[in-house]
Amino acid sequence: MLQVLAPQSEPSNHMREEEPSWQAHASARPWESELPELMIRYQQGDPEAVDELVRKLSGMLIQFLGAFGLSRADTEDLFQECWIRIHSSRHTYRPPEPVLPWVFAIARHTRLDGYRRRRRQENREVLVASPPDLAGPVNDAPEPDLTEFRRMLESLPESQQEVIFMLKVTGMSLEDVARATSSTVGAIKQKAHRAYEKLRLVLEGERK
């Protein structure tokens, strides 16, 4: 569905000639409906389901884990730890519940534990032998949209970053995000509204 939203002023880099729709969200994961079936096969011990799940979800997971200013090495460590946790707690998924909130609840917990671990290490280690890796995409291909996206995301407090990431990148609904963050729909709406206010300011600043 396309809505006519022609900008009155000069179109900026955000205003594409082709008006955007929620198509980008839907096309981000056309395979979403297959996930519960894959999870059932995974719980039954089907090795092909493991490959399929890892292939389908890894991109989103590594994007989520690396979206908060982590080095590549740290992101990859968290990514592996996250899959180990998913594997050891696969019995806690209940078909036919939505799979993404379940996966992201575990990913979020992995990320928070990793954050606490790093904080403890940083408190112990004052001197470093070499400068840490710069946060960046995990593969080597240039991804300009991601950099711009990360810059916008980093203008928000961390709890709002998480909510906006899940809403924008994974295409999860408000209820799914509430499930993934062990929160309520009301609290998620509140965080999203605060993030919108802040994003408006950042976008406004960018224009000026």
Partner: peptide
């Protein structure tokens, strides 16, 4: 400002491939 926010939210993000 609202239009920019709306467009930004709707825009897709390039996927990351591990």
């Amino acid at each position: 400002r609202c239009r920019r926010l709306y467009h930004w939210l709707l825009d897709g993000v390039a996927p990351t491939h591990p």
